[in-house]
Computed example of a mutant assay.
Amino acid sequence: MSTDPRPLSPQVLVKTPAGRALLFEYRVGEGLPPHTHAGQAVVVAVLRGRLRLSVDGREHEVPAGEVLHLQTSGLFSSRALEDGTRVLVTLLDLG
Rank of each mutant, 00 (worst) to 15 (best):
M1S: 14
M1L: 14
S2M: 13
S2Y: 00
S2N: 13
T3S: 14
D4E: 15
D4Y: 08
D4A: 12
D4T: 12
D4M: 11
P5W: 09
P5S: 08
R6G: 03
P7A: 11
P7F: 06
P7I: 08
L8E: 15
Q11L: 13
V12C: 06
L13E: 12
L13K: 14
V14I: 15
K15G: 08
T16Q: 13
P17A: 00
P17Q: 06
A18T: 15
R20V: 03
A21K: 06
A21W: 01
A21M: 11
L22K: 04
L23D: 09
L23M: 12
L23H: 08
E25N: 14
E25T: 12
Y26E: 10
V28Y: 01
V28P: 01
V28S: 15
G29V: 08
G29P: 07
G29N: 09
G31T: 09
G31H: 10
P33K: 15
P33D: 15
P34L: 05
P34K: 04
H35S: 05
H35F: 04
H35N: 08
H35D: 08
T36F: 00
T36V: 11
H37Y: 03
A38Y: 02
G39D: 05
G39K: 05
G39N: 06
Q40L: 11
Q40A: 12
A41N: 08
A41W: 04
A41G: 04
V42T: 14
V42E: 13
V42P: 01
V43R: 13
V44Y: 09
V46W: 04
V46D: 07
L47E: 11
L47H: 06
L47C: 02
L47R: 11
G49D: 07
G49K: 10
G49T: 06
R50M: 12
R50N: 08
L51E: 07
L51R: 04
R52H: 10
L53A: 12
L53C: 07
L53G: 07
V55I: 12
V55Q: 02
G57F: 02
G57A: 09
R58Y: 00
R58T: 13
R58S: 12
R58I: 09
R58Q: 14
R58E: 15
E59W: 00
E59F: 00
E59D: 15
E59G: 02
H60K: 03
E61L: 13
E61P: 02
V62M: 05
P63M: 03
A64M: 01
A64E: 11
A64G: 13
G65P: 04
E66S: 11
E66N: 09
V67G: 06
V67K: 08
L68C: 02
H69E: 14
H69A: 14
L70S: 02
L70R: 03
Q71Y: 02
Q71T: 04
T72I: 04
S73M: 01
G74C: 05
L75R: 10
F76M: 07
S77D: 10
S78W: 01
S78T: 14
R79W: 01
R79H: 04
R79Q: 15
L81W: 02
L81T: 07
E82H: 07
E82Y: 01
G84N: 09
T85E: 05
T85W: 06
R86K: 12
R86G: 00
R86D: 00
V87L: 09
V87D: 06
L88W: 02
L88C: 09
V89H: 08
L91D: 03
L91C: 05
L91E: 07
L92T: 12
D93Y: 10
G95A: 14
